[in-house]
Write a protein that binds this DNA or RNA. Sequence first.
DNA 1: CTTAGTGCAAAGCGTTTGCATGCGA
DNA 2: TCGCATGCAAACGCTTTGCACTAAG
Lengths: 156, 156
Amino acid sequence: MTDQKQKNSSREAFTQFLIERGLRKTPERFAIADKVLGMKDHFYVESLRESMERDGYRVSRATLYNTIQLLIEAGFVRRHQFDGQPAQYERVSPKEVTNHHHLVCRKCGKVKEVKDAELIKALSLKRYRTFQPEFFTLYVYGTCSTCQRKLKKSNG
Amino acid sequence: MTDQKQKNSSREAFTQFLIERGLRKTPERFAIADKVLGMKDHFYVESLRESMERDGYRVSRATLYNTIQLLIEAGFVRRHQFDGQPAQYERVSPKEVTNHHHLVCRKCGKVKEVKDAELIKALSLKRYRTFQPEFFTLYVYGTCSTCQRKLKKSNG
DNA sequence: CTTAGTGCAAAGCGTTTGCATGCGA
DNA sequence: TCGCATGCAAACGCTTTGCACTAAG
């Protein structure tokens, strides 16, 4: 599926979601959804807001938070929060299994994605007695290459 | 090792940590460390503060946050943050490999620990090209049994 | 004696909320 | 028309910070 086709089908799925929930199909909601569906990387609420403003579209924070919450419930977006940083959001295809995990540097806070199909598969097959799993997130904490280099330098 | 012995050795290790860093060995730091080392469950800054106050020991929030940060850097404590909740902290034995992961209910926010030695072992053996891993956290998001029951009821 | 560490209160900052207005159904 | 959704600004709650004071080394 091309990016464009996937985006269109996501837009339709979001419309469906709004209908099922009996929510209104407002232009703000679609503008935000479109922007988010076009995001490649993780984003912050503020960066999303600025990005939309650059496109000449102003939305209030209230509506942004509200709509992101809907996108999470619809399964298009996941929320991450590392240490004291503001929340980061990540666009995902609905029903899609997690296909990567995150390396988080404890020194500088940088987050990197790594793919590991085998590991992911093993994790997604896990079942629990009474808990119904939907998806998972794996964070590996440690030191990134840049900070390792810095440490070596300062330690002699 | 008994709990008490482990606590003593942790106290010593914390003292060592302070010395290595050239930090002062204040009574507040030891009081907080002792309390944290005795914690069984996850705790919040406020619950820690209240717990200490019940013991007749008052510490300022500034010192609490400061000392918890030190305990994290020393490897005795890990920080978790779920959705909009205040940060939760978890006591860990230093150098100890993670021995459980977390099931997080998307409906009610409840967090449950599960042990899975095999999975944990596989995860802790993972290596990366340039990233130096120290520990990891695995969160499985889904619906807990209580919320499943509630959903069934309301859906007929 | 020096200065890191503490307590307190105020400030910060991401996020949520209350309320008046606007607009989808 | 009806009431959900929006925008704005104020409120919130956790966390950090500035400052004067205390005490570790």
